[in-house]
């Protein structure tokens, strides 16, 4: 489309084009794997709008003024000024409180158990790398609904040891955040070459604790932050395990409240979606992008 007169072999980087072959060649930028600007924005625009419809419908729904028709923002005001009745207020704020507590405990469980293990495997037991990866990605294959069948008996034991506090769910959540957390941290571990760093530290006489906390952790803090954020997002959206183990978290509370007052439930659902969106934007900004597990390759080809 944007045909230029000369073959831009010089701008194509290090690869020199051989133009002395028999076949007639085309200008190098004549082949467009990507869409034109206009095509891109048409596709993005149409699909983007379609995907905004349900979100817009949620907003529209919360603004409805009751059976008479018309719109107002009274429900949003009620939510933000604490004007909710106790019946609506209590379950949602209990659920929200529980979910926030679970998010914190899950992040702690993840950081304390997963991170030292990943560092250790990376530095000391590279032969276990595949096993660790397999285990960490396993929860994708085992649906939460299957896990919960086996978690029920496990939790009757857990309840006897730790009580039936809602925070104990964090042990199960630590498992379901594994694939996400693993990818974020592994991306970072590979990128900063912790092996060399730890060897350098060890040759200077550092012990394992020093290596872990003063050398490795500061270098992978982006990955740790990304892993923590994504864990928080997963925990705030979790429904299956909490619902079937009869615990209250944000999602189960939303389902309960939606039966009595769908408007308030949808307002909180919107807020939760926006919060998760902001968390994920933050992850993108931090740069520990969880979307790919092969950043080193990307770097090499860039």
């Amino acid at each position: 489309m944007t045909r230029t007169e000369t073959a831009r072999t010089d701008t194509a980087g290090t690869h020199t084009a051989r133009t002395d072959t028999a076949r007639p060649t085309r200008p190098i930028d004549d082949v467009h794997p990507g869409p034109s600007r206009r095509t891109r924005w048409i596709i993005v625009g149409i699909l983007g709008l379609l995907f905004l419809v349900p979100i817009a419908a949620m907003v529209e729904f919360t603004l409805r003024k009751g059976l008479g028709g018309g719109y107002d923002v009274s429900r949003w005001i009620a939510v933000f000024t604490g004007g909710l009745s106790a019946a609506e207020n209590k379950p949602i704020f209990t659920g929200l409180g529980n979910s926030l507590l679970l998010a914190v405990v899950t992040v702690v469980v993840m950081l304390v158990l997963l991170v030292p293990t990943m560092v250790l495997v990376r530095i000391r037991f590279p032969q276990l790398q595949r096993v660790l990866e397999f285990v960490c990605l396993l929860p994708i294959t085992i649906p939460a609904i299957v896990l919960v069948v086996g978690l029920a008996p496990v939790y009757s034991v857990v309840a006897r040891m730790f009580g039936s506090g809602v925070w104990t769910l964090a042990f199960a959540y630590g498992v379901i955040v594994l694939p996400y957390a693993y990818r974020s941290i592994q991306t970072n571990l590979v990128a900063v070459d912790v092996v060399t760093l730890s060897e350098a530290a060890r040759s200077l006489g550092a012990g394992w604790l020093t290596i872990l906390f003063r050398v490795v952790v500061p270098n992978i803090r982006r990955g740790l932050l990304a892993a923590s954020f994504i864990s928080v997002a997963v925990v705030l959206g979790e429904y299956t395990i909490a619902a079937l183990l009869n615990r209250v978290n944000l999602q189960t509370a939303l389902v309960v409240v939606s039966k009595a007052d769908p408007f308030i439930a949808i307002i909180f659902a919107l807020l939760a979606l926006v919060f998760a969106f902001v968390l994920l934007i933050a992850i993108g900004r931090i740069g520990g992008a969880p979307r790919t597990s092969k950043p080193s390759r990307k770097k090499a080809t860039a």
Binding site: A233, V234, L236, L254, L270, L273
Partner: peptide, 11 residues
């Protein structure tokens, strides 16, 4: 990310 992984009930 939000829609694929954390939507669930909200969707």
């Amino acid at each position: 990310g939000v829609l694929a992984q954390f939507g669930g009930v909200m969707l």
